[in-house]
Design a protein around this nucleic acid. Structure first.
Lengths: 215, 215
DNA sequence: CGCTTTCGTTAGAGGTTGTAACTCGCCGCC
DNA sequence: GGCGGCGAGTTACAACCTCTAACGAAAGCG
């Protein structure tokens, strides 16, 4: 993780200020959400004037892009660590859930409502496929699922997205259901659609995970 | 749907202008998303001055709340019509998918990233439970599912949210999985997370629905 | 030591939400 | 019919936002 190559003092200072900006940005986002993120407010909080921040981020969108990058990176690292510690697909699911509950806004920054004009830069899609690979590995390590469905054969014909991964189409299918089902539970839970309903979202998550592991 | 009681001409005009404002708001939101909705721009588009709109909506949040209300109402009506036309749970699923694809921003307004400070007014939660009831009815009409799980018994102890509905806990469970799984597929599809992956999201949706209907 | 790069400042354009005060027109009432 | 009042729409303004331009100052580099 030490990406610091030859640091001139200027670059070191610059990286430090950028980090402090994103730190304040995360704080502000945790209380007001991504849409209310204000460069002016961050600058004021850091004791500098508004336009000074534009030395470090070309625009507000640029700052948000950096936050998205950090969020992706954080999730990829979390899953990677869990996988390295020997977690199976179920373990990865719990790592994902813990990561999402730690900071809901961070989760929504990655998987929430997209901004119409915005499109993710190339490196975030690279991290995204890193995440996919980790999950696909865990899916492929599980015993083969039941009967092949018609969607399985559809996936056999459209497996270019699983960049060179040699998992059988059943594993691809399991990855997609893993992703969509857990995202369904998590996003509705984090958005507060279960509040006041009385049941425990963790148990719904566990029930869905159970079915994913056994089917 | 004729909620027009005794209309004084003033009230009629007022309702008309309000409707025209929301019409422009939907147009603007379809192109720029909810966060970019501007009262000023709407006013300019309607040929009036900015502050004039504050006669009709107390604030920008108030306008968005109205849009949320309309979105909920639209979904509830859509499902209700499908149900009245004899659709089973599978038919309701397709009605939901069609409704979501018709206007993704409308879907995200209901089920997307929540705004931190914002909380839905009482009437939208009433419409929300209307939607829940329609889906629960369809779940209860299906033949009983397989073995009762531990989550089923948990739901048996926490069924207060299913306001007076007499569906067995298995049906409650099926409703929750229906909701979360289809939302998982739909929201990721609408957010564009499947673009470039090659497979057909409609077939993933169908596969998930198949498993929901048969399990 | 001097040159250059970069940082942070202030000033300002153009956008937004929202408030205050004012004018004009319509509607009902006597 | 005349008149009072209510409400719609207007301009002016405050306060905030993003972002650009031009300037001074401080720091590193040769």
């Amino acid at each position: 993780m030490a990406t610091t190559g030859t640091d001139s003092p200027r670059e070191r200072y610059r990286a430090q200020v950028r980090a402090e900006i994103t730190r304040h940005a995360w704080e502000q986002m945790a209380t007001a959400g991504a849409s209310a993120l204000s460069l002016n407010a961050i600058a004021k909080q850091m004791g500098m004037s508004g336009p000074a921040l534009y030395r470090y981020f070309a625009s507000r969108d640029d700052l948000i892009t950096e936050l998205v990058r950090e969020a992706y990176r954080s999730l990829a690292d979390t899953l990677h660590e869990a996988s390295a510690a020997g977690a199976d697909l179920s373990g990865l699911a719990h790592a994902l859930r813990d990561w999402a509950l730690t900071d809901p806004h961070r989760y929504f920054l990655v998987y929430g409502t997209p901004v119409p004009g915005y499109q993710a830069p190339a490196d975030t899609t690279a991290i995204s496929s890193e995440i996919m690979t980790t999950l696909l590995d865990a899916c492929a390590a599980l015993p083969r699922a039941g009967a092949a469905t018609s969607f399985d054969s559809h996936l056999e014909d459209h497996r270019d997205w699983a960049a060179g991964h040699h998992a059988p189409s059943g594993a691809l299918h399991r990855f997609l259901t893993f992703w969509t089902r857990l995202h369904g539970v998590l996003s509705l839970e984090l958005a507060g659609h279960f509040t006041g309903m009385g049941f425990d979202p963790a148990r719904l998550f566990a029930a869905e995970l159970d079915e994913l592991m056994s089917s």
